[in-house]
Design a protein around this nucleic acid. Structure first.
Lengths: 200, 200
DNA sequence: CCATAAAAACCGTCCAGACGGTATGTTTTG
DNA sequence: CAAAACATACCGTCTGGACGGTTTTTATGG
């Protein structure tokens, strides 16, 4: 017996397609291209059909945000090394996921969408920030060292450069950059709030 | 001859105010808030007055971009250390300028605008990337080491977190982060394409 | 297994508001 | 007075989304 009744209309699949089309539109043609009509057309559905599943543009964007966060979260979880007390566990996974994004793969365009959303709406900034902070609390025993922070910051920098293709000095040396960052010694986590090594 | 004619209407000052108001609008309310009417109202001028100085929205954005790049460039130049062969001269200055941005100062909000513009318009991505690459060519003898790249990437990460206030884990530790990054040894510039030093 | 009614999925049109931009004044400056 | 600096009024377009209609799926009862 078929696990999927294979009915003609598949609402769940359509919802996914709508979100993916929205992501692709943003990445390929910029935020202004994200209109209900464009999304509907790309997904091969009418505007009414789109509005049936996402009752407003905000709802659509919200769904997009949720999808991206969930996707990124699962990717990071999958990349986390098993050794429980490995320094900078989370930050290293965070970096790896971002560094390995291939913008030519539709599913991986999703992450770029996040930055674009952050730029349009302060509301999503807050949600993203709290997501990061939550993860950081969860991994506070391994990911509080200055070097762990540095890895995450550098990852964000890589992420940023993914947007517009990035300067040649970055995009052409992806692998080399990641390799170098992975050799950095994160050092033990610093549960103490300050760790001044005597600045310059 | 008076340096300040102090006439009632001051076009030059208005143009500056228009750009600053545009920057503030973007940073505080997101890109969608950047409309001609909003900018004009914030600057205390009519829409016609705005269009008199910037004949289209694109012209306004272009002016914004130019202002930001010029401001950032001069800041970095001023922060570059005098010793000619100091490793990562440029990258360290780049980092310092970004890390010291105080988003509560209107003039310094300008830099955040850049990211937002990058996210909306691929055209400005290219212009920004080429600006960076140009600077990098200029400083290729001091700023090609992997660690120098890392400093710039981390700076971009800080920059990004400036957008939405950034997660608490970053915004509240600004100084500590900068201090740590400054202690990293950039190592000598690597004119050769690879330079693995194994660990920090 | 079928008939059928209700609900869910989807379509196509229309409209109000917003936005960029123009055209035409009116005031200020030199 | 001429030109620059600004104001006011208005237009065309685009977009979100409301609305009513149509088709497909599901639930129900015999």
């Amino acid at each position: 017996m078929m696990t999927r009744p294979q009915r003609k209309n598949n609402p769940a699949a359509l919802r996914l397609r709508l979100l993916d089309c929205a992501a692709t539109l943003i990445v390929d043609h910029g935020v202004p291209a994200l209109t209900l009509e464009n999304v509907a057309r790309e997904a091969g559905v009418s505007k009414g059909g789109l509005l049936h599943h996402y009752s407003s543009k905000d709802a659509l964007i919200g769904g997009l945000f949720d999808m991206v966060v969930e996707w990124f979260g699962s990717q990071v979880d999958a990349a986390i090394e098993p050794e429980e007390n490995r320094p900078a566990r989370f930050s290293r996974a965070y970096l790896q996921v971002i560094a390995n994004i291939d913008m030519s793969v539709p599913a991986e365009k999703r992450l770029a969408v996040l930055i674009l959303m952050l730029s349009s709406d302060p509301h999503y900034c807050a949600r993203w920030n709290s997501w990061v902070d939550e993860r950081l609390r969860e991994h506070h025993r391994t990911d509080t060292s200055p070097m762990a922070r540095t890895l995450r910051l550098a990852a964000d920098g890589l992420w940023l450069s993914d947007l517009g293709g990035g300067p040649d000095s970055v995009s052409s040396k992806r692998g080399e950059i990641l390799q170098f960052l992975q050799t950095l010694d994160p050092g033990p986590a610093t549960s103490t709030p300050h760790a001044d090594k005597g600045g310059q």
